[in-house]
Design a protein around this nucleic acid. Sequence first.
DNA 1: ACACGATATGTACGCCCGTACGTATCCCGG
DNA 2: CCGGGATACGTACGGGCGTACATATCGTGT
Lengths: 192, 192
Amino acid sequence: MSGPAAASRPPVPRRPRRHDPGRRDRLIDAALTVIAERGVAGTTHREIARVADVPLGSMTYHFTSLDEVLAEAFTRHAESVARVFDERMRAAPDRKAAVEAVIALVSDDLLGAQRDLVLAVELYLAAARNPALRAVTQAWMARSRQALERHFDPTTARELDALIEGLVLHSALSTDPMTPEQIRHAIDRYLR
Amino acid sequence: MSGPAAASRPPVPRRPRRHDPGRRDRLIDAALTVIAERGVAGTTHREIARVADVPLGSMTYHFTSLDEVLAEAFTRHAESVARVFDERMRAAPDRKAAVEAVIALVSDDLLGAQRDLVLAVELYLAAARNPALRAVTQAWMARSRQALERHFDPTTARELDALIEGLVLHSALSTDPMTPEQIRHAIDRYLR
DNA sequence: ACACGATATGTACGCCCGTACGTATCCCGG
DNA sequence: CCGGGATACGTACGGGCGTACATATCGTGT
């Protein structure tokens, strides 16, 4: 079937060039996927490229180093989560509604988004050894607290923020995670 | 100075064999040091061997794999921290003293033992992807809760445990960590 | 005393990594 | 419409890694 012209083509499957604007963005998203699945330790140029289905060389073209990829990925993740938190607090008309929103957010994190928690902890750990990432975590924490301060005084906001963190982390690690009712009970008890 | 006999010795500095009972234990401790300093990702056979000042081959003799080293190291760490927590709760004569002990433990963790927190978070993350380590974290959490239940009802113990976790984690990541007074305020408010 | 098993040591192998770089292809401004 | 810069692609290089293994040495039970 295939003529000599086809046979003369070297068997090397050279992948067709693709016009791919926004590839850099996709790479950052792919990096977040890899971090969530394999951890920062398992996040390599090659693995990100595989997930995004691009050649290895594309990584070094769009980023100067792997650290740059990690920093941009974590920044994007923190921004995304903080925005949701901010919007929910902004949407709450009063303190009672704000409490409900917090309970809903914590419950969602526990039940649905294992990914988000893993990414957060990965960030915490990476930040412990990388000053650039520490700035990312602190901006995130500051923004969360600020969102809470729409409805609570600063001290309460800070303590509530810590309680939320503990509830999410603790429950996510347990084989017997807290139910939304138990989450509500803990938060209500603190705020009572 | 050095006779021909000395010169005939090959210049390879073969290290003298050492009689070293308990080397396996020292290797596990060295592993914890490396994990705390460089993270699980930076924990390699070679690095542990360097820290413990033993040849690389000693690692493969005493452990069948790197995962075995990590598991034993984390198990030892969790056991050590849990024992301290347990002892402090056991030593508290009443609930008031128990609260003071909790505040002291949290404050110590924040001010002194950055190492312990890093190790805990490293364990959490490793456990998220390794079932064997998940058992370690759960045994640890169960033991902590049990210790708290000496002075608090089960629900309070669980919620207090989560609050403690959040306070330690949150403060350790902040450039503006909570003072012992602020820790006391948060715990008192929850328990009031 | 002495052999033998336990322990200690050094090294080699194959793999994956980050990064650099030369070449190929395409979009777009003039 | 065409040339040049931006983007895409493949590959090579040096290094660190986990692990296996051959060899050397020592403590100890008989």
